[in-house]
C-alpha cells in the first residue's frame, strides 16, 4: 500500500489530503473537508482533471475569456491550447456561449465574458 499526500485545488482552502492507494486503486481518502475534495483525490490518482481557462482571438482583435465547462485531462491541456489558439471567432459573444463544442469528450469550451 502506498500513501500519497495531495493538496486539493478545488477551493482556496487547499486541504492537505492523504490518499491510500494499492495497485492503482484508492483505498481511503482522509483530510478533505468536503465531498469535492474526495472526488478530487480519486481523480488525481487515476487521471488528474483540470478546468482549462484561456482566451480566444476575435476578428476585430479583442480577446474573449473562455473556459472548459467541465474539467479536462491535465495531460491534454497543452494540446487543447493548440486547438483553441488555431481559431478566430466573431463578436458579439455572451457568457455561456459555446465556442468549441466537445473540445474533449463532452467538455465544451464556453465564453466567460460578454464582449460586443
Amino acid at each position: 500500500m502506498e500513501k500519497i499526500l495531495l493538496t486539493c485545488v478545488e477551493c482556496p482552502m487547499g486541504c492537505q489530503i492523504q490518499v491510500e492507494v494499492e495497485k492503482g486503486e484508492v483505498l481511503s481518502v482522509t483530510g478533505n473537508t468536503c465531498p469535492r475534495g474526495k472526488l478530487y483525490a480519486q481523480n488525481e490518482i487515476k487521471c488528474p482533471m483540470r478546468v482549462l481557462t484561456t482566451t480566444v482571438k476575435t476578428y476585430d482583435g479583442k480577446m474573449v475569456a473562455v473556459k472548459t465547462d467541465k474539467p479536462v485531462k491535465r495531460e491534454s491541456m497543452l494540446s487543447l491550447m493548440k486547438k483553441i489558439n488555431a481559431i478566430t471567432i466573431d463578436l458579439p459573444v455572451k457568457i455561456g456561449d459555446i465556442i468549441i463544442e466537445n473540445l474533449e469528450g463532452d467538455a465544451n469550451l464556453i465564453a466567460t465574458d460578454d464582449l460586443q
Binding site: E10, A65, K67, I95, T112
Partner: peptide, 10 residues
C-alpha cells in the same frame, strides 16, 4: 461556484 474574473464581475 467557481467563476472566472469576468463572470464574477458580470
Amino acid at each position: 461556484e467557481s467563476l472566472s474574473g469576468p463572470e464574477y464581475a458580470a
